[in-house]
């Protein structure tokens, strides 16, 4: 009996083979040009790759990223809920915040926080319009470059992340909160246990993007002398004049860190994807056309 199983020869893709070779070739030429360039001293790169100052910079970059993202996302959830609120005051405050912090360059915000002491030389807690003062201190004592940097990055991040969180919240069907309300759940509980966990599915991928941006944007804090990775690299190169080599060192580590970030993101996507059919898979299958089980 003749089997009617589908055993077909796979479709050939000659263009793929050709372009793969071409791309490899171009990439090799590029690498070779870098290697042979007299402008780059590889030994210097190797020497500074694990330099203790560079490692300290990496640590600080990671701490800054983590703090700014955690504070930023926490504020963002508040801002997103405010923007969706029925209270017109909360809506306006949130809209204004997002408008302001998205609308001005991050670099200017960083410089502003870093040099806050020029505008407000002293920070004072008192009853306004009276002589009663509880506490006063020079701004520079209270606000270190590190703190100023974290504030600047967090507030800016909050404005962007708020829109991501809001997108996540409005992607959830109203039927979900109606069902929750009909069970006697209160608004805060509904947000925390029903809506946000589902919204996370939509929130996590763009938030991964934000984290990568944040990791790189911490380098802007060099302008207010926060000694993160980029600041360390440029400090070293101002002494040994190996600018390009130290930029390569810094770029290498940024690349390593952004690569590693994919791991927690994959974990979060899996965690919040529970209970949902893998839509990425089914969409891609639809786009590519029917696939056999083998692939």
């Amino acid at each position: 009996m003749i089997s009617d199983d589908v055993i077909a020869r796979p479709l050939r893709h000659p263009a793929r083979t050709f372009s793969s070779i071409l791309i490899l070739l171009i990439f090799s030429i590029f690498l070779w040009s870098l290697w042979s360039s007299p402008g780059i001293d590889h030994k210097v790169i190797g020497k500074y790759l694990f330099n203790p100052q560079i490692i300290d910079g990496i640590k600080l970059t990671l701490i800054l990223t983590l703090l700014a993202m955690v504070i930023g996302i926490t504020l963002a959830i508040g801002l997103a809920v405010m923007k969706l609120s029925t209270n017109p005051l909360l809506r306006t405050v949130s809209t204004f915040f997002i408008w302001f912090f998205r609308g001005t360059p991050l670099l200017i915000q960083i410089v502003f926080w870093g040099y806050l002491g020029l505008i407000y030389p002293n920070i004072t807690i008192s009853i306004p319009f009276t002589e009663i003062i509880f506490f006063t201190s020079p701004t520079s004592n209270l606000l270190s470059a590190f703190t100023a940097g974290v504030i600047a990055l967090s507030l800016n991040e909050a404005a962007y992340a708020a829109e991501i969180v809001r997108a996540g919240l409005i992607s959830i069907d109203v039927g979900q909160s109606e069902a929750a309300k009909s069970l006697g759940m209160r608004n805060q509980f509904i947000l925390k246990k029903i809506v946000l966990p589902q919204a996370m599915r939509v929130i996590v991928p763009p938030m991964g993007n934000e984290t990568i941006s944040m990791l790189k944007n911490t380098s802007l804090l060099a302008v207010i002398a926060v000694m993160e990775l980029y600041a360390r690299a440029s400090q070293i190169s101002s002494q040994n004049l190996a600018q390009v080599e130290l930029l390569v060192v810094a770029a290498f580590w940024y690349l390593v860190m952004t690569t590693v970030l994919a791991v927690p993101q994959a974990y979060l996507e899996k965690k919040y994807g529970r209970g949902f059919a893998s839509t990425t898979d089914s969409h891609m299958r639809f786009i590519r056309g029917a696939r056999s089980d083998k692939t």
Partner: peptide, 19 residues
């Protein structure tokens, strides 16, 4: 919310919590 505790509701589209 307290008043709703004693009234159960079943919806046309189920509205189960998918997560």
């Amino acid at each position: 919310a307290n008043q709703r505790k004693k009234i159960g509701m079943v919806f046309q589209k189920f509205n189960l919590f998918p997560h």
